Amino acid sequence: MSMLKIYESLLVNIRSAKSGTENEEEIIDTEETSPGVCHSINMNEEVRNAILAYGFFAVIWSFGGVLHPDSKQRFSEYLKNLCDQDPTSSKPRGLQIPRSVQLPKFENVYDIVYVKKKFFSWCLWKDVVTPTKIEDIIKLNMKNNENDVHLMLNDIIVSTPGTAMQMYFLETLLLQDKPLLFVGPTGTGKTAITNSFLRHLPQEKYVVCQINFSVQASANQTQDIFLTKLERRKQRVYGAPLGKQAFVFVDDLNMPAKEKYGAQPPIELLRQWIDHGYWFDRCNKY
């Protein structure tokens, strides 16, 4: 399921890339065929390659994303050998992978991403890092806090391959209504990077509900905090304000205290919402 969600979100890039080339000048031109035909053939080949490459990427970050670090290295070598044209390497019969889609031999598969600059290709995460511009951060801070134009040090996120990776998954999955979970050691910037991404979202389109779990967090408190950010649409239906989309950011997910048998009610409430899309009304018993 995780692989299909990632793959579905990535395919949106292909549709946007195809629509973006409708008004571009033709790149390939020969005397034998018209420019339009050549461009169409070239574009179709790029689309086929992207579909295959995104499949690899979805496998890497679904099946491979939950592996132990030692197993990740072996998994990386296995996938690269699978793409290798060496006939002695074991791989399914008839598997043909275009050279332009093959995983780079000398890079770890977790260090690369398939993106389109001028053409689709595998790139290192460090190649997609965007420079940090203090001026843009100040403008955003002034827009969100009209009465306070002071810039705090924790408002500045210095772009690194790690931040580029997290921002990529936030943009790819969250904006396609796919929930995601970031897991990692304390102090690696998960909360700061996510908050930075959410602050940059247009306020006229999105509303953000942030919850910080603690040991004392309960399921009832969690549900009440959610509902304060939503509007009552019908008798039993709550939703984001009209014309907006609601995002929920839960920090310190592992903090709620466990019950006698190991359950954590706030997390079970989140699981019910993600799996089933609704909660029961505690007052009216429906």
Rank of each mutant, 00 (worst) to 15 (best):
Q73H: 05
I225H: 02
Y261H: 11
E26A: 01
L10M: 13
Y286D: 10
T194H: 04
P104V: 11
N44K: 10
T88N: 14
M167G: 09
L227F: 03
H276L: 11
F226G: 00
V128N: 13
K178R: 11
L151F: 02
E146Y: 12
I41F: 05
M255K: 13
N195D: 10
L180K: 03
I225K: 04
C209E: 02
E171T: 14
V208N: 10
M3L: 15
E46A: 11
G262Y: 02
W273H: 06
D224S: 13
N13K: 12
P265V: 14
Y261E: 12
D281R: 07
Y114F: 15
K91V: 02
V37E: 05
L151S: 09
M165D: 02
T191P: 02
I225Q: 05
S71T: 09
A17G: 07
T191M: 07
L10T: 14
Q73I: 14
F63W: 09
W279L: 15
G184K: 08
R233V: 01
P202L: 08
I51D: 05
R15S: 11
L11Y: 10
V248H: 07
Y54T: 11
K229D: 03
D224N: 09
T163S: 14
F182E: 11
K178L: 00
D84S: 14
P241I: 08
V66T: 15
D177R: 06
T222Q: 06
S76W: 12
I28C: 01
N144C: 09
A17K: 10
L173K: 04
L253N: 10
G20V: 15
V207Y: 06
V183L: 04
H200T: 13
L201Y: 04
N144H: 09
I134K: 14
E26L: 01
P185S: 14
E146N: 13
L181M: 11
D275E: 11
P98G: 04
E32I: 00
Y168S: 11
D136L: 08
D177C: 06
E24C: 06
K133A: 01
L181Q: 04
W273P: 00
V129Y: 03
H276A: 11
I51Q: 08
K178W: 00
I225A: 06
Y54W: 05
E259T: 15
A217C: 11
R236E: 11
I137M: 02
A257I: 08
D252H: 05
V59L: 13
K117D: 12
K118C: 01
L52N: 07
D148G: 03
A58T: 08
I134P: 02
